[in-house]
Design a protein around this nucleic acid. Structure first.
Length: 228
DNA sequence: CGGCTGATGGACT
DNA sequence: GTCCATCAGCCGA
């Protein structure tokens, strides 16, 4: 449905040298990049979240890019509020929000301090800590559904309001201390990706309908909720 | 598999 | 009062 296939050339594997300590050193690579560029680069990256019960790691398979005052689909469209404050902060933090009265969703903030932009983490494949993820997602019928959706992903990783504003570390995801969040782009090879309109974003024909949702083509963990 | 709907509470107009 | 960057269960094909 209006989905634009993206060439394999655009899906070249992320080279860690392009993002030295990306989420550790403000002002380096990620600052100069749009949330759309960061979103594409995050496909295939590994994200780990530690907790007292252990660590769960996912391979990111689906994301959406959001901007600020220029983006009608963004929480930051009408300016800074208590809820979206983290979006206006520096890159490398988690922006976590509560929606529909029951779900948490997580983003990675991508812009410089003062500029609102973020990438919504929409789906992933659990690659470590599967047992813990299953215990958190008891309604999941198969492992592919453990993190196939933004709220499912947050639940599987144990992300909730306590993580809003948490800095994302660039360290390896194994044996994480409690409540530490880690993003690992190094050595990650992602395959071809596709793009299409963002989910749940009503469009007026403007920027809101731009194809700023990205996913790894054909990946079974990509969320099934795609209609707007 | 695809479509439909109730749940449920906080943020914002 | 209205709107959600959603999900699970149920239904029919």
């Amino acid at each position: 449905m209006g989905e634009g296939e993206v060439t394999a050339a655009g899906a070249a594997a992320v080279d860690a040298r392009d993002f030295p300590h990306a989420f550790h050193v403000p002002g380096r690579a990620w600052y100069a990049r749009s949330p759309q560029d960061v979103a594409r680069d995050l496909l295939g990256a590994h994200l780990s979240v530690g907790s007292p019960k252990g660590t769960v790691t996912i391979r990111i398979t689906e994301v959406e890019a959001y901007g600020g005052s220029e983006d009608p689909g963004s929480h930051a469209y009408r300016g800074r509020t208590a809820r979206n404050a983290t979006m206006f902060g520096p890159a490398g933090r988690l922006y976590v929000y509560f929606t529909y009265g029951m779900h948490w969703c997580g983003n990675l903030v991508t812009g410089p301090d003062g500029v609102a932009s973020a990438v919504l983490l929409r789906a992933g494949q659990v690659v470590d800590g599967v047992e813990l993820a299953r215990s958190r997602r008891t309604t999941s019928k198969s492992d592919r559904d453990l993190a196939s959706g933004p709220a499912r992903l947050a639940t599987a990783l144990g992300i909730d309001g306590q993580h809003d504003g948490t800095s994302v570390d660039a360290a390896d995801g194994h044996r994480m201390p409690d409540s530490v969040v880690s993003l690992r782009v190094r050595d990650i090879r992602s395959g071809p990706f596709s793009s299409g309109p963002r989910t749940g974003v009503s469009g007026d024909g403007g920027l809101a309908t731009y194809p700023w949702r990205y996913w790894l083509t054909g990946d079974p963990t990509v969320s099934r909720y795609r209609t707007a």
